[in-house]
Amino acid sequence: MTARDIRVVCAAIVRDGALLCVRKEGTDLFMLPGGKPEAGEDGLATLHREVTEELGCGLHPGSARLLGQYAAPAAHEAGCTVRADIWRADLSGAPRAQAEIAELRWVDLHDRTVEPVLAPLLRTQVMPLLRQS
């Protein structure tokens, strides 16, 4: 990792062929729920904390599994690279936008017309991966 890298942990939550995406306040691109780990926090702990903070619900116990680590240009930080641990998980409870989240959107995995509003990591790495599964 370099000083221009942004490490995050994200949740890929799929229901009925659609992926839950979020748009943060003051931004125009959708991304996965998640965020940066706090000091001493492992990936799974970060995932649980971020989902609770951003979506106001929890993860179904035992549902989280690591899909892998992915990298792409950061959506809102010019010249930076986001390096993300992506976890596939199921929610327990109904998600609602809170904290810095301005909007939630369920995006059909096979609807390519939404690609212009998706962050690079989501558009180039996550959506193709999930379409295959």
Rank of each mutant, 00 (worst) to 15 (best):
V14K: 01
V14W: 00
G17F: 00
G17P: 02
G17Y: 05
A18F: 02
L20M: 02
L20P: 00
L20I: 02
L20E: 00
C21I: 08
C21M: 08
C21S: 15
C21H: 08
V22N: 06
G26D: 14
T27M: 05
T27E: 12
D28T: 14
L32R: 03
G35D: 01
K36A: 13
D42H: 02
D42R: 04
G43T: 01
T46D: 11
V51D: 03
T52A: 15
E53L: 15
E54T: 07
L55F: 02
G56R: 10
L59I: 11
P61S: 13
G62W: 14
S63A: 14
S63K: 15
G68F: 06
Q69S: 12
A71M: 07
P73E: 09
P73T: 07
A74Y: 00
A74R: 00
H76T: 07
H76D: 14
H76W: 06
H76N: 12
G79T: 02
G79M: 04
T81M: 03
V82A: 08
D85F: 10
R88H: 13
S92Y: 04
G93K: 14
G93H: 10
P95R: 07
A97Y: 12
A97I: 11
A97L: 11
Q98L: 08
Q98P: 01
Q98M: 10
E100G: 03
I101L: 04
E103K: 07
R105I: 06
W106K: 02
L109K: 03
H110K: 11
D111R: 14
D111H: 10
R112Q: 07
T113A: 15
V114F: 10
P116C: 08
A119S: 15
P120H: 03
P120R: 08
L121M: 06
